[in-house]
């Protein structure tokens, strides 16, 4: 464990909690892409199948449980509890264009051709593009609530910090995982546009609005 990875995990956990609280407190999921949250639930499910078979540490197991439980809770709130506030007309990204290519790629490029390893690889590839429906929805509505932009910023920063974690681990642990690094780079690049808007607007107290 190193500071970048720890801060990354904290940032990721913060994003998940921010979203849960935003929906629960405001009793509304307006502006939130249910499709992205569905994809995140798939990402955690396919990545943590070894939750009960491969114990690494208490921290690792407890964080995995929190991630899986909160992602399912978020999906449940969007598609069931507060589905009346779900803005389906603006959440129109074709997720099959994300799931199919990443599934095919996980069969072609992986560390080991075994079910668990292919599912782990699929989850890494899917995570790198899972935010696209949400970013697409923000660009379609032309704006995002400030709390939603804080959620997106925390979520984007988590994988950016993981990039520094991989530099650290390559330097000091001779560890590198090209699949995770390349997917992490793609994931971070997808946030660049949003990071620019967040830093130039939201941090100056303005509302996040995209040129429609």
């Amino acid at each position: 464990m190193n500071i970048f990875r720890f801060l990354g995990d904290i940032s990721h956990l913060s994003a998940i909690i921010i979203l849960l609280l935003k929906i629960w407190k405001s009793r509304s999921c307006a502006g939130i892409s249910g499709k992205s949250q569905l994809l995140f639930a798939i990402v955690f499910t396919t990545r943590y199948l070894d939750l009960f078979t491969n114990f690494i540490s208490f921290y690792n197991t407890s964080m995995k449980v929190v991630y899986v439980a909160s992602s399912y809770a978020t999906v449940w709130m969007i598609y069931s509890k507060f589905k009346a506030t779900y803005d389906g007309n603006h959440d129109t990204f074709r997720v099959e264009f994300l799931i199919v290519p990443t599934a095919i790629l996980s069969f072609l490029v992986n560390h080991d051709f075994t079910p668990l390893e292919i599912l782990w690889t699929f989850s890494i590839y899917l995570e790198s593009v899972a935010i696209l429906p949400q970013l697409f929805m923000v660009s379609k509505t032309g704006e995002a609530e400030t709390i939603t932009s804080h959620y997106l910023f925390a979520l984007g920063i988590y994988r950016t910090l993981y990039l520094f974690n991989w530099i650290w681990r390559y330097q000091f642990e001779e560890f590198f995982d090209l699949i995770a690094i390349v997917a992490g780079l793609v994931q971070t690049v997808l946030y660049c546009d949003f990071f620019y808007l967040y830093i130039t607007k939201v941090l100056k107290g303005k509302k996040l609005s995209l040129p429609a």
């Binding site: 990875r5 995990d9 990721h12 070894d50 491969n54 690494i56 690792n60 964080m63 995995k64 991630y67 992986n110 560390h111 080991d112 075994t114 668990l116 390893e117 782990w120 993981y162 974690n165 560890f175 590198f176 995982d177 090209l178 995770a180």
Partner: peptide, 10 residues
């Protein structure tokens, strides 16, 4: 290079 199955990151 990481060995398959020993993914210790979240």
């Amino acid at each position: 290079e990481v060995l398959p199955g020993d993914h210790d990151e979240l």
